[in-house]
Structure formats: C-alpha cells, structure tokens
C-alpha cells in the first residue's frame, strides 16, 4: 500500500526542491505545491520506473559527487589542451567496459558520469546489459582506462545503489 502511494520516497523532496528553485521562491505555499507535485509525479509515472531506489551510503554518494565534479574540471582542461595543441596526433579508441552494476539507475548514472569526465563518451550498452562501449578521445593504455573507470566511478555507484 505504502509502495503504491509513495513509490519513490526520495524523489518527492527532490522534486519539491526543484520546484522551489524553478519558482525562485522559498515560501510555505511553494513548498506545499512542490510536495504535492513531488507526490503526484512519481505516482503517475510509476510504470516507467517500477524498481524502487535505495541509497545505502549517502556519504559515499556525496564523496562520489565531489570526485566527479573535480574530474569534470580536470577533464575540461585536458580536452581543451588536446584540442588546441595537437588534434592531428590523437589516438582515439573504442574501449569495452565489463559492467559489475546491474540496476537501471546505476548503469545510467555510470554512463552519464563517463560522458562527463576525462576524454570519454559512452556509446552503447550491449543488449545483455553487461558491457558498455566507450569512445575515448586519446588513449594510450586501454587497460588502465578500464581499471580507472571501474575503481573510480563504478565501485562507489555499486556500493551506493546495490550492495
């Protein structure tokens, strides 16, 4: 029953917060409206997102977000440097990453993270959902790249959403 009435308990406060940011006003009225929307939207979109989401370790998630933001900064500088200095000598490559995460949310977050960080764009998920194809802009050591992605991004995501 509670599952049907409140399918994604975490989504409700997040949507309420986004609503108040959109309105650019933190008042009681907008908080109530935001909470109503935050309750109604998950209920009506339940069939698109049936599996419940649980966050096991909020601190790990927080640390992951900080690491990713920092990496985005570094990635931007690195890619900018590559574009300006030597676009002719880049060695792009496709790299396949075997996935250890299984849930939809964790896979999407991992793919998004990969696209936002160092010289990599996620290109395709295999039909069996066990490998992610990644295009790297400049890579000399494919195994090191796979190892970095697995330890730096996939491991914390697995800890937070699956475990």
């Amino acid at each position: 029953m509670i599952q049907r009435l409140l399918p994604h308990p975490l989504l409700t406060p997040i949507l309420a917060l986004v609503w108040m940011l959109l309105a650019n006003e933190f008042s009681a009225g907008h908080a109530v409206l935001g909470l109503v929307l935050g309750w109604a939207i998950p209920v009506f979109t339940l069939r698109f997102w049936p599996e419940p989401t649980r966050i096991h370790r909020p601190l790990t998630l927080l640390r992951f977000i900080v690491v990713v933001l920092f990496d985005i900064l570094i990635a931007n500088l690195a890619v900018a440097k590559l574009i300006v200095s030597r676009p002719r000598r880049l060695q792009p490559a496709f790299v396949e990453i075997p996935l250890a995460v299984r849930s939809d949310l964790a896979i999407s977050l991992l793919a998004n993270t990969i696209s936002l960080t160092p010289g990599t764009v996620s290109a395709e998920l295999s039909p069996e959902r066990d490998r992610l194809l990644v295009h790297a802009l400049h890579v000399t050591d494919t195994e090191a790249l796979v190892a970095t992605i697995k330890s730096r991004y996939e491991a914390p995501l697995k800890e937070v959403f699956e475990e």
């Binding site: 931007n76 676009p87 002719r88 295009h135």
Partner: peptide, 19 residues
C-alpha cells in the same frame, strides 16, 4: 579541428560544460 564524428562528440559534452 577534430577529424572524425566520434572525436567531435567530445567537444560539446566536455569543454563546453566547464564554459
């Protein structure tokens, strides 16, 4: 400046994010 489609994809997703 980049030479193939896949490499060009990197520009808009990254350098622009920081910008």
């Amino acid at each position: 400046r980049l030479r193939d489609f896949y490499s060009r994809l990197h520009g808009p997703t990254k350098a622009t994010t920081l910008g």
